[in-house]
Design a protein around this nucleic acid. Structure first.
Lengths: 142, 142
DNA sequence: ACTCAACCTAAAGTTAGCTTTAAGTTGCAT
DNA sequence: ATGCAACTTAAAGCTAACTTTAGGTTGAGT
């Protein structure tokens, strides 16, 4: 497949595909003149990459997870770790959402006088609800 | 208060305080020689800013929300909007978390053979679970 | 054969939110 | 009066994940 076909089918721009290849996330199987040719399974690979991105992995993490070969063989423990991490994020965002909803409905003359809003401020300021600090090294598999 | 005092009490680095002032997010009330002096209410302002950041607002958004004056007067409708946005993000992350948990427990020989995992891949690839900005955050560098 | 849209590469630019650096100034303790 | 830690500014640097640009090449349709 030509790069434009891959771009069209995957929704990933050609420039990004070239960038991913340069980073080692994907590979092309040959050239037709200068032009890259991709195998059909590139689409699956791109879907995996998209999944990883949505789950909160960096491209470098995804790269080490998927490895260079054809058989991804994803570490299950890492999935658990990521799920747990996501869970923490969800809790925080939920707190935040509830706090915002309350603040919107609150009858206090100013938000600064609403105890709940103030509590939220305090939490944010103290870093207690600061998002996922995931910088965990993902194990190099394969 | 001296900038170092504000930094210590708020947890916000002096460099960031200067940056915030430059952006118009906060103001100092005067100078002692070259050195900035901050009023006591700066701490409350910083807490509000922290709250906004955690809620997923950009600094520019926070700036226009809080305004230049002393009385924040936060728009309640905007809080609702943001809460709704957060809610969508939460839904997506929840789907993601459940999918990851399943994939971790799944007995299929390869993840690529697990229908649920594949569904997740498809969703991610189609952009159906691409998050709004609040999901996005990077702190800690180096 | 000729045209040209689509491809190619390398490098620079983008965005956000800061941090770091370099060079200079100064309040305060001794 | 002196030393120096802590402040000051402007500008450059950093990270991630791309995108854009500039200049060059080419496969394929007419």
């Amino acid at each position: 497949m030509d790069i434009s076909i891959v771009a069209k089918r995957s929704g990933v721009p050609a420039s990004t595909l070239r960038y991913y290849e340069e980073k080692g996330l994907i590979r092309s199987v040959g050239r037709k003149g200068l032009r890259r040719l991709f195998a059909a399974d590139i689409l699956e690979r791109l879907a995996l990459i998209a999944l990883g991105r949505v789950a909160g992995f960096s491209l470098d993490e995804i790269s080490s997870i998927l490895g260079g070969g054809d058989n991804p063989n994803i570490d299950r423990e890492m999935l658990i770790t990521k799920a747990t991490e996501l869970d923490r994020t969800i809790q925080k965002l939920t707190d935040m959402r509830d706090g915002l909803q309350h603040a919107a409905a609150c009858t206090a003359p100013s938000h600064l006088e609403c105890p709940r809003f103030r509590r939220l401020m305090g939490l944010a300021a103290s870093g207690a609800i600061k998002g996922q600090p995931s910088n965990k090294r993902v194990k190099q598999s394969l």
